[in-house]
Design a protein around this nucleic acid. Structure first.
Lengths: 234, 234
DNA sequence: GTATATTTTTTACCAACGGTAGGGCGTCGG
DNA sequence: CCGACGCCCTACCGTTGGTAAAAAATATAC
């Protein structure tokens, strides 16, 4: 009896694996095709053809094109979350001697996510784009907004804590966090669009570096403060 | 004979006016509908219905949906060009006492364009978006890229001249210009997407102000330089 | 004033898209 | 061996951007 049970269990397990495998295949194909052809020109038939499956099969696993598209975000989103979490832990344990070090790490973390998964990052931007948001199903949009809000709260927590530790100049965290995010995304997007979607712009790295230096110079309490408020250490 | 000629001429003139009028009507309707429904959900039939004309009539004046869409950019693009040109002239005549003043004016100019025509600005972002660019006809895309390049060259000219005048810290103009643009567009886009496309985010203004202060603090030669080079005032 | 040429607008249509209904097929449980 | 279940495919729908060709409106010539 235990034998029969475990047999059934094994079968269920295999099915689950097959299912996951199929989902992964679909996601892989979708990502490849999106990278090649863009959101619009990538059709569900293309994806189906690539996975050697018919269109309705895909609709078995994803309830719409938007949903499939949104699912491509998961890995990058998770990576971002983890990276920020690592930074937050490091910060909380007093691991950052200067605000510059913290900001450098933050930029590096974001850049790392982009580097390991540029396509996902582009999708992320696409979702963030207001003009595009109108395209999405309402529930897909809600899900995205919810996730974005979490990441932003995480960022604000980090900045807040850094200010408490005297690493960053005291200021309203909300716009500050927005500025950092907007700057990073804006630069990536700009250089990306210059490259025409294919080759990476040779200006990506220097521009990102300048952006980082700029933020550090203007906000790190250990550097030069943004206003006339003098820092009180030495 | 001159009479007959001028008659023909008058008729041609009237036709030209009617044609322009019709184009304006179409553009107006398209902009309204884009604002209401977004790029995807705004169909050519909708536009035609709004202008009380049939669909092929629109295709007489615009060769594709992308083209119609692109034409919505013209006013904002022109306004941006003019604003930057004004700034450049003022700069060339030595009208800016400090780099801060120049940068402030630049941000204000960009914000002014956004303020008078937020929809057009959104379209601009849409075009700049790499994921979206893949959607466009190749020639429409080329036209856009060409125009964007002009604006960027203008920006670099301004920054270069400002450095020559000692208003801004010497640095590579290319990434600097990119950073300013990316920061502005990024903030608008971010706050826009938070507002859900409708109401303006209450964080738009403070975030833009912070962004401006940040850039000024980090780059204005009359303020605090970005590196350890001490300023020699006071 | 009427017939002809030209331009403009429309009706009717196409291929392609995202998405769905309903039946066929293989697999699991008894 | 049989019925139930779940997965998958063929065939289809409504809608979209875009077009061909007729039709209508207008200008020109006599």
């Amino acid at each position: 009896m235990g034998k029969a049970d475990s047999h059934r269990e094994a079968i269920r397990e295999r099915k689950r694996q097959e299912r996951e495998r199929r989902i992964r295949d679909i996601l892989d194909a979708a990502k490849r095709l999106f990278f090649q052809k863009g959101y619009q020109k990538m059709t569900m038939n293309d994806v189906a053809l690539e996975v050697r499956v018919s269109k309705p099969t895909i609709y078995q696993y994803f309830k719409s094109k938007d949903d499939l598209f949104f699912s491509l975000l998961a890995p990058a989103s998770e990576k971002t979350e983890q990276a920020l979490e690592r930074i937050e832990r490091h910060l909380m344990s007093g691991g950052y001697p200067t605000g510059a070090a913290l900001l450098h790490d933050t930029f590096q973390a974001l850049y790392g996510v982009y580097w390991t998964d540029p396509e996902a990052f582009r999708i992320l931007q696409l979702f963030q784009h207001s003009g595009m948001v109108g395209v999405l199903d309402e529930d897909v949009r809600r899900e995205f907004v919810a996730k974005a809000r979490l990441t932003f709260e995480q960022g604000r927590r980090i900045l807040s804590a850094a200010m408490d530790q005297g690493l960053l100049r005291r200021m309203d965290v909300h716009p500050f966090n927005d500025v950092v995010w907007a700057l990073f995304v804006g630069v990536i997007q700009l250089e990306d669009s210059k490259g025409g979607g294919k080759g990476e712009s040779p200006f990506l790295k220097p521009t990102l570096e300048l952006a980082e230096r700029l933020v550090i110079a203007a906000t790190a309490a250990d550097g030069r403060p943004v206003a006339n408020t003098p820092s009180n250490d030495t």
